[in-house]
Each structure stands twice: as structure tokens, then as C-alpha cells.
Design a protein around this nucleic acid. Structure first.
Lengths: 239, 239
DNA sequence: CGATTACTTGATACTGTTCAATATCCGTGG
DNA sequence: CCACGGATATTGAACAGTATCAAGTAATCG
């Protein structure tokens, strides 16, 4: 398992810088161009599993292409998607010897699998790796904390608006005030990410469309026409 | 600010080992007994603020005594408590140059404030500090991920039951099948932690009492009489 | 082109919120 | 010691938002 080596030749997709959390810090591994030599490049089709909750946590994974979901499942089938994972993200760290959530591909995915032991052995010689892991963990933590506010204190419309804004920030540069974004995940994934049902997600999107705040050329392509009115709904200010 | 030095003399409270997340790993700074010499010991009364969201993130804090809450506030006053913080916990790390949430004392609190720059300078000489920070971050991440499931997919009764179980695990050793726990925080804090209202929290507790699953000698003292039936409600198993 | 999956829309039910009243706890002062 | 007052917690009734169940529409794939 995890041994499909495909030479260190970069396919050009590379690793792009990734905005994270509140914006100022960068969480990029661009400063480690030799990273691919340490790991195995692998590909995954939509809905295939990178690792299961409970698997031995013996690899880190650096995503070079595609979108994934990290999720937890309850015995009765309820599912919570803790985060969506994008190109540039590094995953696989855990305080436990086993992964505490499942990661599946949403779109076709390319990644570099790094054996944890080899990362830890080479880390002294490559301090950027230690730093990259720490930055990735801190970025995820920041994201989780914001998501807790979303799930704990926001209504359905605010949740969906926030999701669209985040996706827009991830997807591409934003033209001022408006943006067209590609929605790579299905309604079910969005619902399980936002703690809602697919029906509610669908209804909210329809309502936003009716109010002219968004347009939907197709069901996985959304134009944010009034970005400000969406973003203003989820600003945060300490008292 | 943050300069009330009170000699390195330990007051006996010390730093106790802290269980975290899924149980196997330990996140203790017990292996760094000289830590107090690096920082300033400070005390906080209930409801006083250790740091505000937006403050410059220039210190780590090692809690030696008491309980705190880490929270975020929306402009309109809605509040989400991301976590409760206990003795043994290390806080203050952030990917951003500023703290992204506010930390306030729930009970009287004692802690050691460590200037971030001095931690980072001495870290090479004290690798246990780097490790401790990483473990603390990973523990919190694990806790946040579980909390996302709670807020996104659990009903009020499940949320309260989970809260009680977690608190029981934190408070003290569990006699088999039953445990009396001290609730240090008010209903409002519990509600803001669980994404509910105080009324709902109160109602759920009353219902659990009516069903004989808990007893309440006083409103901040709860006996878990049927721990199993509480815990079974929030087990997690991957498919 | 038919079948399957994904998405949308509608009607109804239910959980949790909101608003309001009452009860309990706790510290203070008579 | 008890009375008072403020804060905290509990309980009740009406309401609102989201889930559930069900049907219909659109997109996708063989």
C-alpha cells in the first residue's frame, strides 16, 4: 500500500501558496522544492478513500491537486465533514497513533505520501518540514475554531453564505465585489459540512438566488453577485 | 502588562498530567520542571480576561490552577465558547500575529506567562517545549474536531451528555459506572459551549434528572448515575 | 434514450428558541 | 437570625427554523 512511485518529476501542478485563516500568515511548502523526492506520488478517484478513521497514522500527505473531505461518522450513520482539503494542504498529523477521521477524495486527487518516520528522521536536516507541519496544524486549528462559531451560533443562511465566501477565497482571485466559483462537492457534502440537511442547503441557495445575491448557471457553479452582503453577515468583532 | 514576577517558587499546585482527546497520548509538561523559572506566575479572578481576541499574541500561558473559557464573539453579541481550558493546558499559540479568540477565567486561575520570544529562543535548548507546544496544538485540534461533530450533528440531549462525560473525564478519577462532578461554569457558559440556550440546557438537565440518569445536589454539582447510558449516546465508529 | 443519481420544491412535524414568569441561591445589612 | 435584593437557574407557553417525508425536476451516464 502506498508504494506507487512515479519518479520525482514534477508534473507542473506543483504546490501553490495557500491562504489560511485570518489571512496574514502563509502556509506554504513552496520553500521545500525537494519534497517530492521524499515521498510517493499517488492519485485517487472521486469518493475513494485516502485513509480511514482508525487506520495507523503512518503517513503525511501533501495535496498537489484536487479537493478532499475530512469526515467523522457516528454509529447511526450521521456524518460530519470537519473540513474540505485543497491543493497545497498538508494532512495526516495526529496526536494519536491512529487517524481520528476519514479522508476521501471529492474530485480526482493527486498527492505526495510521506512516510511519517522518514519525515521525522529528515526533519532535523529539513527544518522547513517541521515548520510546515506546525503551520498546517495551526491553520487547521484556526479554521476549526471559526467553524465552531458557524455550527454553534449561525443560522442556515449565514452558514451557507460563509461557506460560499470561504470557497471563493480558496478558489481563485476575487474580482472586486463579485466572483464566479466552482462548487466541487455535492449538496450532501455541503450539508454535512454545515450541519444542515441537503434540503435546507438547496432552499437557502434558491432563496439567495431569488434575492439576487447569487446566480447559478449550473448547480455546481455559483456567481456571487453581492459578495459584500454575504460577507457582512459573518464578520467577527470582539467586544 | 504581564510583569508581576513572583519568584520561581512552586506553590505546590504544580502541573498535572492531562488526558487528552482519544486517550492514548499524554500532553504533559511534567518533564519540564524548570519551566516556571522562564515565566511569570500570575493570578486571575473569575471573569477576568487573560487576553482578548485581537491582542498581540506575544505570550504562551501554562495553566497551573483553575478553569478558563476560550471564546469568540460576533458583532451582534452571539458568543461561542470553543473550549474550556484546565490546569495542565498550554495556550497562546496562534498562526496569526494576534490571538484569534478571547480567554477569560471561569474560576480563580493561576498560570505561568511565557514570553513567546524567550520560548522560541530557548526552545532549541529545551526541545521539550517545542514538543509540548506541538502536543498541545494537536490535542486541541482533536478536541475541536470532536466538538464539530457535537455541534453539527448532535441534538440537545446528546450535547449535554457529551459535555458531562468530558467534564467527568477531566475532573477526577471515575469510579466504575458513576461519578460526582463539580460544574465550575454557569449555565450560560455551558449553553455557549454547546450551541444551545440556557433554557434548553436547563431543560435537558431536568429531564435527565427526571429519568434518573443524573442527580443534582446543587445546580453546580451533578452525579452521573448511569454513566453508560450517557456515554453510549456519543460513541463514534467509522463505517 | 432510458435509468440512475443529484437537486429542487412542497407540506407537515418537531426540536429548540424566544419571551415571560417563577424559583433558588447567595451575599449583605437590618 | 431573618429579610431583602440581585444574580442565576428553572419552568411554561407560543413561536420559528430546520428536519422529515414525499413528490417532482434536472443532470449524468451507460
Amino acid at each position: 500500500m502506498l508504494d506507487i512511485v512515479t519518479s520525482g518529476k514534477s508534473n507542473g501542478a506543483g504546490v501553490r501558496a495557500m491562504p489560511c485563516g485570518r489571512g496574514t500568515a502563509t502556509c506554504s511548502l513552496a520553500s521545500c522544492p525537494l519534497l517530492e523526492d521524499l515521498g510517493n506520488r499517488k492519485s485517487y478517484g472521486p469518493n475513494s478513500v485516502v485513509f480511514f478513521e482508525g487506520d495507523e497514522a503512518d503517513h503525511y500527505f501533501l495535496i498537489t491537486e484536487g479537493v478532499l473531505r475530512g469526515c467523522k461518522q457516528l454509529e447511526d450513520g450521521r456524518r460530519q465533514i470537519n473540513r474540505f482539503i485543497f491543493a497545497g494542504d498538508l494532512i495526516g498529523y495526529s496526536i494519536n497513533p491512529r487517524y481520528t477521521f476519514t479522508v476521501e477524495a471529492v474530485t480526482p486527487v493527486s498527492l505526495i505520501a510521506l512516510r511519517r518516520t522518514s519525515v521525522e528522521n529528515t526533519a532535523e536536516g529539513m527544518p522547513c518540514l517541521h515548520g510546515a507541519i506546525m503551520r498546517a496544524v495551526l491553520c487547521e486549528l484556526d479554521e476549526m475554531q471559526d467553524q465552531l462559531v458557524t455550527l454553534g451560533r449561525m443560522n442556515a443562511e449565514e452558514r451557507v453564505a460563509r461557506f460560499l465566501s470561504l470557497l471563493a477565497a480558496r478558489s481563485s482571485a476575487l474580482p472586486a465585489g463579485s466572483a464566479q466559483i466552482e462548487i466541487p462537492m455535492c449538496r450532501n457534502d455541503i450539508a454535512d459540512y454545515l450541519g444542515l440537511t441537503i434540503e435546507t442547503v438547496s432552499r437557502v441557495l434558491s432563496r439567495l438566488k431569488g434575492e439576487g445575491k447569487i446566480a447559478m448557471p449550473s448547480c455546481n457553479r455559483i456567481v456571487l453577485k453581492d459578495l459584500k452582503s454575504l460577507e457582512l453577515d459573518h464578520g467577527e468583532i470582539a467586544a
